[in-house]
Computed example of a mutant assay.
Amino acid sequence: MRHQLSFACEGAALAATLDEAPGTTGLLIVSGGNEVRSGAHRGMAMLAQRVAAAGHPVFRFDRRGIGDSEGTNGGYTSSGADIAAAVSAFRDAAPQVTQIVAFGNCDAASALLLHQPLALDALILANPWTYEDGDEEADEPALPPASAIRARYLARLKDPKSLLRLLKGEIDIGKLFRGLSALKQAPQPPAPDSLADQLDGMIAELPCPATILLATGDRTAQAFMDALAPSLAYLEANPSTVRIAKLASPSHSFAGGDADWLFERILEGLT
């Protein structure tokens, strides 16, 4: 059964939804961007319903200033108090829960890392956001990660139509050379104190197990993989409490058929 409720966070009333289930391990869904708790096209609401049907209670909420919640929207970097209050409210609403696993996609995944320590037993982090604030507003759009450029140009080289367009002069040569030059750049460690550097440090010091889910065709995931390449390579070669799972998909939110893969990974993280 699904219930609507509210809880307090620093003087503001936050809206939440609980999908009841008898299990003692619950899932806390933290919304990314400025999405309400139902998610894009009700994706998080449908995910919550499936997880609850599998026996795990699920708690979703709108952070301050979003959806039905009061307060000022301070973005993911200011959401630590919201998440902590949601954890407490989840335990109050579902007293049988002894363990809470938190799931976040995009900047919600980054928020779960940045705001440690939190009273959580495990994390499921999908396509973590590593772009600095304002990147998307720059006069000159940032180049995609080198891995994305490489995949794109390899695909074009295999496509006779793209080669024909090049011969006809329909492709911007300057843009082509700009893109190809990026392929020569060796992966660089995150700049000190950058968001990627902070996330890298948090992953290395996590107090609980974590699963990192990456849609390898998604630009946000590609940027994360490029920025933290040495650390991720080490984690994949040396299994630890941080596990990495990859899906060959461009879907940032694991939409369509990818929803089944996401659901399966979340169930693994809950058991």
Rank of each mutant, 00 (worst) to 15 (best):
L247K: 08
G257Y: 00
D200G: 14
G257N: 01
D133M: 09
R64Y: 11
A122S: 14
K168W: 07
P145C: 11
L206F: 06
I100Y: 00
L47S: 10
L214R: 05
S231A: 08
L199E: 13
L27M: 10
R63G: 03
D68I: 07
N127D: 14
I266E: 01
R178S: 13
R150Y: 12
A89F: 02
L228A: 03
H56A: 05
Q185F: 05
A93D: 02
A221T: 00
I212E: 02
A16W: 00
Q96I: 02
A237Q: 14
A233W: 03
I244P: 13
T211L: 04
L163C: 11
L228D: 01
N127H: 07
Y234I: 12
P57M: 04
A182M: 07
T72R: 12
K168N: 15
D226T: 10
A142V: 13
M46L: 14
P160F: 03
R156N: 13
D68N: 11
L143S: 15
E264D: 12
T25D: 06
A52D: 02
G39F: 08
G74C: 01
Q4H: 12
A85K: 05
Q222T: 05
A13L: 06
F177T: 15
A81D: 15
I124V: 07
L262Y: 01
A196C: 10
G55S: 05
D226Q: 11
D226S: 10
L125N: 07
A191T: 13
